[in-house]
Amino acid sequence: MKTMSYTEALREALAAEMKRDDCVILLGEDIGRYGGAFGVTRSLLDRFGPQRVINTPISELSFVGAAVGAAMMGMRPVVEIMFMDFITLAMDPIVNMAAKLRYVFGDQARCPLVIRTVAGGGRCYGPTHSQSLEAWFVHTPGLKVVAPSTPADAQGLLISAIRDDNPVIFIEHKMLYNTKGPVPVPACRPVPFGRARRISRGSHITIVSWSWMACQTEIAAAMLREEGIEADAMDMRTLSPLDIEAVVESVKLTGRLLIVQEACRTGGVAAEIAARVFEAAHDYLNAPIRRVAGPDVPLSASPVLENAAMPDAERIVAAAMELVNFR
């Protein structure tokens, strides 16, 4: 094991896969010498050259579309969308092409495409640079959706994403880039999709989350332990496929479920998890399923407003306490 940052772990995964497979190419705005807005691709231009690290104009619709076309022809493009908010401009090739290619064209078609993008608030970047839009893609059959919270998972899941023959929306979080953690060395190892990671074991309450909220959940679980509450906390890691069995198993033991999502409440992935757990295990529930989620408004730039809107460890603890005390 070696300690590295989330950014470094992502970069190592990209470099390792580019070395392993010449078909892996990178496309995106300012990803060359500049290394991308968050520095993930720094040094890769020098290592792999401009044929494989391709700086694009600001043309999200068409460079994502072009990546779909290149993927159809056997390349394995990894596209960077600087902020997830800008993925709105590329919805057509993602939703109408990439997601449906295999289903409609059958065996002849394959779309090994990864779209790396940056979601979330916490930096006061305002309404159009802070959104968490994962639910849209989970709602689109044919896409895989990944949202790692640790450097090890960022690395392992990115490797799996690149090796996958299907389109993957790979969601990073701007608060995570500088976080550090142990990563397996020397070789980068793939982490399989569809398996949640246990953050802490406990029998009083199940708490599930992903991305930056998984870090908040980890802090919350430690705070709850101080109060004598043992939380069975899980990082979903991939939202499509979703490891609902792990959540159901846990709920069968704890009888209580809290779901934490940063995105606004309505129509989110938390609602989907709640529905599936209720369908599979309603008679095990000793309390209503609860969500800690962002409010149904855009995220403001003002630190005071952003802070008020974003779920954090304290709010998770408060909601968990209420659930545990529910009779």
């Binding site: 305002g126 159009t128 407003l305």
Partner: peptide, 29 residues
């Protein structure tokens, strides 16, 4: 990020408008 700002702290540097001045907004996209 103050309430006296053009967007009452909701927009930030990239998102401000004053329609009375015919200024239909700066834009983050």
């Amino acid at each position: 990020g103050k309430s006296s700002g053009y967007s009452h702290g909701r927009g930030g540097s990239q998102i401000m408008a004053d329609f009375r001045l015919g200024f239909l907004g700066s834009n983050g996209i």
